[in-house]
């Protein structure tokens, strides 16, 4: 179900916690599984739950509580733009609009070529760098003016 590499990474997460507290590793394990699979299908969640010996529904609760777990297949690149107030004051909303217009999709949608999924995000703790865009959940792109967005998307081509 998951590659040996992913399992080794999950084992590293497990090693951080007391032996009887494997459950603590579920957030890390779901993240690792998601990176490998692209998204969290029910079977993936169940696999992770069984691997950590917790109830599948408990893992499902976690996978649905936290925003960054993707429970539907999405585009090759997930772009999350923060539009919360501090960012909005420095161009967050405008950056989002620019992306919508440029990609021709709304928030929560994926481009027809399956390349991009655009998501409206909440505060990422990087308001000083506004506008900010999170690329594929893990890479923070700062000061995303229209030119910076053009450049970033060009890199992703």
């Amino acid at each position: 179900m998951l590659s040996a590499e992913s399992l080794a990474k999950i084992d590293f997460e497990v090693s951080k916690y007391p032996p009887e507290q494997k459950r603590s590793a579920v957030m890390g394990a779901l993240r690792i599984a998601q990176v490998e699979k692209g998204w969290l299908a029910p079977e993936t969640i169940e696999f992770v739950a069984n691997y950590l010996q917790i109830a599948p529904v408990a893992a499902y609760e976690v996978a649905t509580f936290y925003n960054m777990y993707d429970r539907k297949p999405l585009g090759k690149h997930k772009l999350t733009v923060c539009t919360n107030l501090p960012c909005a004051l420095s161009g967050g909303v405008d950056a989002g609009k620019y992306l919508q217009q440029k990609l021709g999709i709304g928030y929560g949608e994926t481009t027809a070529d399956g390349k991009y999924t655009l998501v409206e995000g909440e505060c990422m703790g990087a308001c000083g760098d506004a506008p900010v865009m999170l690329l594929n959940n893990h890479k923070m792109c700062s000061f995303m003016t229209n030119e910076a967005i053009d450049k970033k998307l060009a890199e992703l081509e």
């Binding site: 029910p42 169940e46 109830a55 599948p56 529904v57 408990a58 609760e61 649905t64 509580f65």
Partner: peptide, 15 residues
């Protein structure tokens, strides 16, 4: 379980 968050919370068995 109670999946999702806030107002979207739903009681359900695993899928």
């Amino acid at each position: 379980g109670m999946a999702n968050r806030g107002e979207h919370s739903e009681i359900l068995p695993f899928l």
